[in-house]
Amino acid sequence: MTTLTVSRKRYLPILATLVMLVGAFGFGSARYDGFADSQVVLNLLIDNAFLLVVAAGMTFVILSGGIDLSVGSVVALSTLVSAKLLGHGWPAPVVILVVLVIGASLGLGMGAVIHFFELQPFVVTLAGMFLARGLCYTISVESISITNPFFTYVAQTPISLPGGTHVSIGVVIALVVVAVGVYVLHYTRFGRTVYAVGGSEQSAMLMGLPVGRTKIQIYAVSGFCSALGGLLLAFYTLSGNPLHAIGMELDAIAAVVIGGTVLTGGSGYLLGTVLGVTVLGVIQTLITFDGTLSSWWTRIVIGALLFLFIVLQRLVTRRTR
């Protein structure tokens, strides 16, 4: 009986998110014509594919009890590096590889500093945020457009689905990332260690788990995901811009938290993050459909939601303790 209530408690935040998602969606489809159109739902994925990938990486970090503030800047850096290199005539596969390696090594470096010098993750990733954004500005202060045939192909080729709807290739990539992420988190040694480190770093260490290596790897994963998210954004906008994704780290953190991952680490699900991203997407769509609300309402609503969910988390964790 007690185990049942405890495990039920654990699902409470994610259930609340689900209820809210259904509620928001029901509200939208009752109020606006064409809201429940399946293409609108798929557009939500198309518009937020890059956020989904970044939030997936952020989930790993938050599950381990850390935080990564550098994601937005790394996304911007990735779009800019791809635009610049493609502009110099580099072949697309090489560019993609270079971007992913840059992202992963930035993450690796931050993870190493966090682990070896026991600095707080948020300071180190804050420095990483400055660094990546600074690199962006040194590469270019203006938007660079991408004309590479491969990139435009990926950007403009729809994948048809039954019912006359379609998704972009970016969505498929994002879903693959999520699937791989779920597999890694739940069926590999690395994934179990991530949860263990988030639950209690000291216990994990006493259990003989490779805490240091895992922590460094987690930030490398997050860096890699940010770089991949940047590539998806580059596909989506066909441009590299130093002003891309400013404040995106907040969206990613909000998605993870709304998705039910506890900020102190150790508890949460990657699929919850998918729900979180969807909630953010539905809010955006609602505000666009309304037409009278201005875009800054998105920020306010996201802030309010974040507040609600954090309070909910506090209540839940306090009870179970």
């Binding site: 404040g247 909000a254 800054w296 920020r299 306010i300 802030g303 309010a304 974040l306 507040f307």
Partner: peptide, 22 residues
Amino acid sequence: LGVQPIVGTLILMVAGRGLAQL
């Protein structure tokens, strides 16, 4: 409420820009 400071103040950081524009 005992929320971590980074996150607690993050809320106002996100929503505050929206409020200022409002």
